[in-house]
């Protein structure tokens, strides 16, 4: 199957190892992966700030770029959600609808399309699992704590495949970390406070690392912990599934 890789701007610039892990994981599962070289961003920073009208060109470019692949996979639940949820409204075309439907966050893709059921690497560490809000309530990767119904969690399932790993229990399972895109900048003090509370919950639970399918939440949490000189590791789940470089 032909997979087009979408590497969001901040991962491209600051976390290339996450992109590499995704690419290698997909290839290990037999996907033919292409990476269009003229990509940048999904447009979400603008749209969340109230300027989605300024992103039509960005949407159209995205739709055009991935016309020939079966699936579009990205290591960011938040970006995947933006594409799936807002593109069909922003660019009302069958192509945009199709691109939205073919777009997958890597977590969903590994579980729902590739049916990943084992992992050869190992990671003997106690980790805290942070599911970004857009992955949780937008993409429904897991049951949110508000909804009454059967529990399920794709990120937890994938994490549990990793030999040696232990997932700690948090006191607030799915509290927002306070990133929220431009919110992190416009309400910096509040955003930082939310992030520190989230960090504290993981620390209290004994996590040695925080893992997530949302690198933007991790960028925020990592930045906060570095500033406060808190010793904590941060990984995208794909990095652990693929195995960290020796």
């Amino acid at each position: 199957m032909k997979v087009g890789l979408f590497i969001p701007c901040f991962i491209d610039q600051f976390y290339p190892q996450v992109g590499i892990a995704c690419l290698e994981l997909l290839e290990k599962h037999g996907c033919t992966v292409s990476y269009p070289l003229d990509q940048s961003c999904c447009g979400q920073p603008l749209a969340n700030a109230g300027y989605e009208k300024k992103t039509t060109q960005i949407c159209q470019d995205y739709v055009r770029r991935y016309q020939d692949v079966d699936y579009i996979v990205t290591p960011s639940g938040s970006c995947a959600h933006h594409v799936k949820h807002n593109y069909p409204r922003l660019v009302e075309s069958a192509d945009a609808q199709s691109a939205a439907e073919r777009t997958y966050d890597i977590i969903d893709f590994l579980v729902d399309v590739l049916a990943m059921d084992h992992c050869d690497t190992n990671h003997p560490q106690r980790v805290g699992l942070h599911i970004g809000c857009h992955s949780l309530r937008g993409l429904r990767q897991a049951q949110s704590s508000e909804i009454v119904g059967e529990e399920f969690s794709r990120p937890r399932y994938l994490t549990s495949l990793i030999p040696g790993i232990e997932i700690v229990s948090l006191s607030r399972q799915d509290e927002c970390c306070g990133f929220g895109g431009t919110f992190a900048v416009n309400h910096g003090e509040l955003s930082a406070r939310m992030g520190h509370d989230r960090l504290q919950d993981h620390i209290a639970a004994g996590a040695e690392a925080i893992i997530s399918g949302d690198m933007s939440c991790l960028m925020h949490l990592q930045g906060l912990s570095k500033r406060k000189k808190i010793d904590m590791n941060f990984y995208h789940i794909a990095e652990l599934l693929n195995g960290l470089p020796a």
Partner: peptide
């Protein structure tokens, strides 16, 4: 730098993903 008022920036790698890919 409103981001940096509360947070450190990520350690910037030499190569972006695209550069690595190239």
């Amino acid at each position: 730098n409103a981001w940096g008022q509360y947070r450190d920036l990520p350690a910037a790698p030499q190569d972006s993903f695209r550069e690595w890919y190239m």
